[in-house]
Design a protein around this nucleic acid. Sequence first.
RNA 1: UCCCGGGUAGCUCAGUCGGCAGAGCAGGUGGCUGUUAACCACCCUGUCGGGGGUUCGAGUCCCUCCCCGGGAGCCA
Length: 461
Amino acid sequence: MERLLIKDVLSDKFIGKQVIVCGWIRTKRESKDFAFLIISDGSTQDTLQVVIPHEANCSEQIQKCNTGASVKIKGFLRESPAKGQRYEVEAQEIEVIGESDPAKYPLQKKGHTLEFLREISHLRPRTNTFGAIFRIRNVLANAVHNFFQDRGFLWVHTPIITSSDCEGAGELFSVTTFDFKNIPRKDDVVDFSQDFFGKPAYLTVSGQLEAEFLALSLGNVYTFGPTFRAENSNTTRHLSEFWMIEPEMAFADLKDDMKMAEDFLRYLFKEVTLKCEKELLFLQNQYKRISPDEISKLSDIAFTHITYTEAINELKKSKENFQFPVDWGNDLQSEHERYITDKVIGGPVIVTDYPKDIKAFYMRLNDDEKTVAAMDVLVPKVGEIIGGSQREERLEILEERMRKTGISIDNLQWYLDLRRFGSVPHAGFGLGFERLVQYITGMINIRDVIPCPRTPGEIGF
RNA sequence: UCCCGGGUAGCUCAGUCGGCAGAGCAGGUGGCUGUUAACCACCCUGUCGGGGGUUCGAGUCCCUCCCCGGGAGCCA
């Protein structure tokens, strides 16, 4: 007889049938005539109640059925006579597969703080909260691929180790095989010609530049992979290792880019409300941050669009006492973004056409020559989850921008080649996957939406 | 990196004016009950983050370092 997943077994079609279910024990309640186990197997938000009548004769096994132990249960599924659950399994046989010392097992049958659970990252997926988060994360990751695959985008694999440190997207992690006790030097500086690649190498901060050349031959592409930033950021929305999705489209301008970003987010919101109803409901009840209804509404509405200049005017009009000055030319601070999303718009908003001086060199210069064709998608509570732009496809203008911003032209000749040979308007964006998961799950800290968070000073698991 | 707030039992926390180290939960034992973060009784649990100082006496006051959380910057 095959084992069934809890998500499958909790159904009318198994009532009265003999089933085998495996899982981990959440709680045990014993009485003279019965013992009750609650078990979970990760397949669903629901737990399964197992009733062990005294006559099942497995008191030795019940003794070992402590919180955290893994068990195999053979019994009959039936409707539960008591309140609290619709189905339950009346056990005939119990096998404790792996015991768990209740005095030492860190998870108790009571609530734990998220901070404490972060210290036991290897066990926290067994909790309701993290089970929900990681199932949602899975559904979203799958939906990302489905969205792009349905639209003919190619999933491309851009390098994780790169030599370009020129994007200015933050501090880089070095990749080297040097023996730190004996680093080769020449004229007192590190001699990278003796290193593995013959020159300095880094972990990627973005696959965008490579995605651009793939788009300018394959049409529409996207990346979905890990990204690394060595910034000393200690916040609830930064990770040193995170996953990013970067679509890149040939023959597309900023309007196309925004439309794609909006359609994309709406699709993801829709998928998650369709496939993770129980998970979203659980998180809503537990943390009161965002409801399935709110997410569902987001999947229907058009996002508000506002230019950077309009946003500045809104901020200037407001009576809010901002800590940072509101001036055209300054970047929007967190408090400004929050005011726009929470107070002015009351939902996600796309801010476009930022001053060129606060944006990256590759963004396309607008006709006003003061702003670039950039767009950020801001959402309430989390802030920026998407940053994108139309790319500068005009060789001379790009070269000049690189010179002015101090980007090495020599190292990026291949990037300029794309403008020399059959250049076309193209655009793309980057979505921080964890920020998306964070927004949808309502988790306050981004460290709680990835199994093994990496942040400055933290690499425990 | 900067600014706040913390660090006391396995977990969550209280600890007054500087004067014997506490509670709830968890765990153990027994009881009871179709139980359900079960309930009742009893029992067990301490490097008070580390180091230094003041004092007759420090969880408490001072200095210092470490760690955690929140906010800011950087960004996705």
